[in-house]
């Protein structure tokens, strides 16, 4: 008691109000009953994983050195020499993969339950932005390992930016810090990966959640409008998800430990280069058509996808028809994405 008084004197907040606020915002947060279903936990999963990524990423910076001479060697050092190093790296690497998987699942769920509809259009857009930010942070992170595959993925990947109209060349020059992938590229990617992108992502996550809280969780069709409070039921759910994810990522790390590959060699391009699996659909698509068509088509798709909540009402006035349009578009996108991914996976 004494300590509390001592502290409140020096940190004069209204304690009663604080407790009340805490109760209202967190402990008693009204959660719709459908959230008891595990299917609807996919929104919290990326958040939990993002937390792990921040933690493990921070730990990786204890040993990682972003220079062409030392990047690969320091990753080898972390993986092979440092106690638990392979685990931290494994968590980070599997975390990246699981984060993208869970985002895809989350988006699929949101899309098919039409949770993006008015008045939640902005949150959909923010979500899509978050998804692309996650892809970008994964790409920059992958480049940091500086092995043959990641080096060439970086070279090829950054080259595409050139195709962006008007500012493409400038953007490429900015990203690479020069005409080719070099020392500057690595430090730039490092800064992007550990400072800038996490900062931006953090901001958008914050926005995403604030908007979510202001609207309240959308209730899908067929569920009644009943609520329960955040604590303890949903709180436990988060704990379980956290424990499960950590167990899953640790197990995956033991079974499939992160490799270190062959050191990057700017003079030799490997025979088979592939980006990480989440770029497979785009990669496959770009291989099928000319670069220009590919990039513009991809950009068009991204735009439609991002602004779907506003496009949907333009297609029809009827809710029923909108739903049919959306379902068709969603299923088609899913199928095409799956086909392209599987195709790229099995074709060398």
């Amino acid at each position: 008691m004494k300590f509390k008084e001592w502290l409140l004197e020096r940190f004069p907040i209204d304690y009663e109000k604080f407790v009340e606020f805490n109760e209202k915002i967190f402990i008693k947060e009204p959660i719709p009953t459908h959230m008891k279903k595990w299917l609807f936990v996919m929104g919290a999963t990326p958040l939990i994983i993002f937390g792990f990524q921040v933690l493990t990423g921070l730990f990786l910076t204890f040993y990682f050195m972003p220079s062409p001479e030392m990047a690969y060697e320091s990753i080898r050092h972390i993986t092979e020499d440092v106690r638990m190093g392979y685990w931290i790296r494994g968590l980070h690497r599997w975390g990246a993969n699981l984060m993208i998987i869970s985002l895809l699942l989350h988006m699929t769920r949101v899309f098919f339950t039409h949770a993006y509809r008015k008045p939640r259009e902005l949150n959909w857009i923010i979500g899509v932005i978050l998804f692309f930010l996650t892809m970008t942070i994964s790409f920059t992170g992958y480049s940091l390992t500086y092995n043959q595959l990641s080096y060439w993925a970086t070279t090829v990947g950054t080259n595409m930016i050139k195709e962006v109209p008007l500012i493409g060349d400038l953007m490429l020059f900015f990203l690479r810090g020069g005409d080719v992938v070099n020392t500057n590229t690595l430090t730039r990617f490092y800064t992007l990966h550990v400072m800038i992108l996490p900062g931006i992502i953090f901001f958008f996550i914050f926005l995403h959640i604030v908007i979510l809280r202001l609207h309240g969780v959308s209730i899908p069709e067929g569920f009644e409008e009943k609520y329960y409070s955040f604590y303890p039921h949903h709180f436990y759910k988060i704990i379980i998800a956290t424990l499960f994810l950590l167990t899953l990522m640790s197990t995956l790390t033991v079974v499939l430990p992160p490799g270190i590959g062959i050191p990057a060699d700017p003079s030799v391009t490997p025979t088979h280069i592939k980006p990480e699996w989440y770029f497979f659909p785009t990669y496959r698509f770009l291989k099928m058509v000319s670069l220009h068509v590919g990039i513009y088509a991809t950009a068009a798709f991204v735009l439609v996808f991002t602004f779907w909540p506003f496009i949907e009402p333009l297609l029809s006035k009827e809710k029923r028809k909108q739903t049919i349009f959306s379902r068709t578009a969603g299923v088609l996108t899913l199928i095409i994405t799956l086909i392209l991914t599987i195709w790229e996976t099995i074709v060398i």
Binding site: E80, G85, Y86, W87, S250, T253, V254
Partner: peptide
């Protein structure tokens, strides 16, 4: 198990 695994150098 994680703590017990030795990585090949």
């Amino acid at each position: 198990i994680v703590a017990g695994v030795e990585m090949k150098k």
